[in-house]
Amino acid sequence: MEKFKGVYVALVTPMKEDFSLDTKRLYEICEWMISKGVAGLIPNGSLGEYATLTHEERAKVVETVMEASKNKVPVVVGTGAPATRDVVFWAEHAKQHGAEGIMALPPINYNPLENEVIYHYEQLSKVGLPIIAYNNPRDYATDLTPDLLAKLAKIDNVVGVKEFSGDIRRVHDIKAKTDLEVLIGVDDLSMEGPLCGATGWISGVPNALPEEGVQLFNLAREGKVEEALPLYRKMLPLFHYDAEPQLVQAIKYMMELADQPVGPTRPPRLPLTNEEYANIQKAYHEAVKPLSKQV
Rank of each mutant, 00 (worst) to 15 (best):
A208S: 12
N218R: 13
T79M: 05
L11N: 05
K60A: 14
G45T: 07
V214A: 12
S69E: 08
L257M: 11
I174T: 14
N279P: 01
L144Y: 00
A68R: 12
L149E: 02
L148E: 06
K162V: 06
I131A: 14
N218T: 08
R233Q: 15
L219A: 04
G185N: 02
L41A: 08
E275Q: 14
E56L: 08
G37C: 03
H93P: 03
M254N: 06
K177M: 14
E116R: 09
N115A: 11
I29L: 15
F239A: 14
L53K: 07
A278P: 03
L195S: 10
L183E: 03
L180R: 05
E276Y: 00
P245C: 09
R269T: 00
L291Q: 11
L149F: 00
A68Q: 13
A68L: 11
S190D: 10
D167I: 13
M191H: 06
L41G: 06
V225D: 02
A51E: 04
I29M: 08
P264A: 05
A250K: 00
Y134N: 14
T199R: 10
P43M: 06
E227D: 12
Q246K: 13
Q294K: 10
H285T: 08
M1C: 08
A153D: 13
Y8F: 15
A150E: 06
K252Y: 01
V73P: 10
Y253M: 10
T273Y: 01
L189M: 13
E116L: 08
P82M: 04
V158Q: 13
N111L: 10
V61R: 05
S69L: 03
S165P: 06
V12N: 11
N44R: 02
V12F: 01
G200F: 00
L195K: 09
S20Y: 00
K72W: 01
V62W: 03
I131S: 14
F19L: 14
V295W: 08
A81R: 12
N157D: 10
P107V: 03
Y110R: 15
R233L: 13
L47W: 00
Q215V: 08
L105R: 04
P194M: 06
K177V: 11
A51D: 02
D86V: 04
P271Y: 02
G48Y: 00
K162Y: 01
A287D: 04
A198V: 01
I251V: 12
A99Y: 03
R25M: 13
I155K: 11
L238C: 11
I118V: 14
A91R: 08
Y110V: 04
T64D: 11
P245R: 06
V295E: 08
K177N: 11
L11P: 05
